[in-house]
Amino acid sequence: MAAETRPVPLVLPRRARVRIRGGGLSTLVFLIPLLLVFGVFSWIPIGRAVVMSFQETNLVTPSTFVGLQNFRDVLADPLLWTAVKNTLYFAFLALLFGYPVPLVAAVLMSEVRRFKSLYSALAYLPVVIPPVVAVLLWKFFYDAGPTGVFNTILGYVGIGPVSWLQDSASVMPSLVLEATWAAAGGTVIIYLAALTGVSTDLYEAAEIDRASIWRKVWHVTMPQLRGVLLITFILQIVGTAQVFLEPFLFTDGGPANSTTTLLLLIYNYAFANSLGGEYGMATALSIMLAVVLGLLSVLYFRLTRGWSKS
């Protein structure tokens, strides 16, 4: 245990010292609750996970150190590459559909004059619905029989029935559709807020120059939103790389592993075998994913450092 909590003291004093210089003892006192909460619920578990990735353990009997064996086991698992492929596919589809949709919605909504708050409320509503409830609801929509909700609607125009979740070709787009619906509202609100920050002078100047609406969007709105767009882009990538809820609840990774994502694989390592799972492998893969995403974010911010300044 002593070894496992080591990362925490490394972090605490340094932060504390900085704060003390800035504001004295009272700052530290105010900081303590936050540090404790972060320490107990974030840093200790993260530290323990790092340690566990080098161990073989069933959480009951004492654990033994196995060096890099867990990492080797994970890399040798053929399912890992399926999961990587599926996760990238999900991220790609989510980027393709999930990224532009909120932007377009926000731009359109900022243009309308009447019932503006109604539209933003409607856009945000899916975010309010608990994610599990949303997925269970969509399971009904996605019923593959001709009597399923979506298939009934499509049937009116002579399409279908579509297999939705029951076919490895259509299952991933189906998950992305639901995920986009569920998450778009939050991003729309961010864009709407950013749009109010765009100076109306710029639009007026564009109007004097007789710019069309598309030119206004392209030459005024987009450059003004650049900073926000860059942030939401990386947040989207990091978020979709950790997709778990949809494949877990919709398909449990099926059909035939076509929606087994990295996080679902991590979960399966740890929990799918009812007799004490491979917690070491699960934490090893978690750490590899965290490192990759961390590096990706650093790289991204380096590359785009100059772009966000307008």
Binding site: D167, S168, D252, G254, P255, A256, A272, N273, S274, L275
Partner: peptide
């Protein structure tokens, strides 16, 4: 037992969906 069951899940899923 359960681990082998687990790896048979995608086998039967594949036959029924592909």
């Amino acid at each position: 037992t359960q681990e082998v069951y687990k790896l048979l899940d995608p086998v039967v899923q594949a036959v029924l969906t592909k």
